[in-house]
Amino acid sequence: MAAVKIIVDGDACPVKNEIITIARMYAVPVCMVASFDHRLPQIEDVEMVQVDRSSQSADMFIANKVKAGDLVITQDFGLACLAIAKHALTLSFRGEAYTNDNIDHLLERRAESAKRRRQGLRTKGPRALTDEDRKKFQQNLTKLLLEKQEKHEV
């Protein structure tokens, strides 16, 4: 099996530094993908990919790049679903794993919220990222990479 790669939906990702720090500890390559509207600075040892401004460009680039065993980090349920279908691991910016067991429910909830907004109703956005969320993300990313290392996939 090829070595794992971390592919990040970099548009508005609040845990970029945490990803890079942990990935370096395990010598795992990182690819950050963002639209030109979310300019990414060049970072040593991190592949930075800028895609056009259309609404799904970053997601489509990632969906086409991801391979089985890779780790995709995103808040987008649709992208997570595509990554799961390719047998990739997926994590949210809060460290929550997207899996076959929970993705259908998350997609249904997203569709229901979109329907409510089309009806003129207000829906809540995501809550602010807390220090506890960052810690959970770091712990879960570290745990995933440790498990892959033990299986000699890193």
Rank of each mutant, 00 (worst) to 15 (best):
residue 123 T to C: 06
residue 79 L to D: 07
residue 121 L to K: 08
residue 147 E to W: 01
residue 18 E to I: 10
residue 143 K to H: 14
residue 47 E to R: 13
residue 31 C to Y: 10
residue 104 D to G: 12
residue 29 P to N: 09
residue 83 A to M: 01
residue 12 A to M: 13
residue 35 S to P: 02
residue 135 K to T: 14
residue 138 Q to W: 04
residue 98 Y to C: 03
residue 142 T to E: 03
residue 132 E to F: 02
residue 125 G to S: 12
residue 139 Q to C: 09
residue 140 N to V: 03
residue 48 M to V: 14
residue 130 T to I: 03
residue 97 A to F: 09
residue 40 L to G: 13
residue 125 G to I: 03
residue 80 A to C: 05
residue 51 V to C: 03
residue 115 K to V: 10
residue 44 E to S: 02
residue 120 G to E: 10
residue 70 D to M: 09
residue 14 P to Q: 10
residue 50 Q to I: 10
residue 64 N to F: 01
residue 66 V to D: 04
residue 21 T to M: 13
residue 63 A to Q: 08
residue 88 A to H: 02
residue 18 E to W: 02
residue 146 L to V: 05
residue 55 S to E: 14
residue 51 V to P: 02
residue 7 I to E: 00
residue 27 A to V: 01
residue 104 D to S: 14
residue 33 V to K: 08
residue 128 A to N: 13
residue 8 V to A: 10
residue 132 E to Q: 11
residue 135 K to C: 13
residue 106 L to H: 15
residue 100 N to G: 12
residue 53 R to G: 01
residue 59 D to G: 05
residue 85 A to W: 07
residue 128 A to E: 03
residue 35 S to R: 15
residue 125 G to M: 05
residue 59 D to L: 04
residue 105 H to A: 15
residue 16 K to L: 07
residue 83 A to Q: 08
residue 89 L to K: 11
residue 15 V to D: 06
residue 90 T to Q: 00
residue 138 Q to T: 14
residue 108 E to V: 15
residue 112 E to T: 11
residue 63 A to V: 06
residue 154 V to M: 07
residue 74 T to P: 12
residue 118 R to M: 10
residue 28 V to G: 04
residue 43 I to N: 05
residue 28 V to M: 04
residue 44 E to T: 06
residue 120 G to L: 04
residue 62 I to F: 08
residue 115 K to L: 14
residue 7 I to L: 07
residue 154 V to L: 14
residue 43 I to D: 09
residue 144 L to C: 12
residue 122 R to M: 06
residue 75 Q to H: 09
residue 111 A to G: 08
residue 82 L to V: 06
residue 124 K to E: 05
residue 122 R to Q: 13
residue 21 T to C: 07
residue 111 A to K: 14
residue 36 F to T: 11
residue 130 T to R: 13
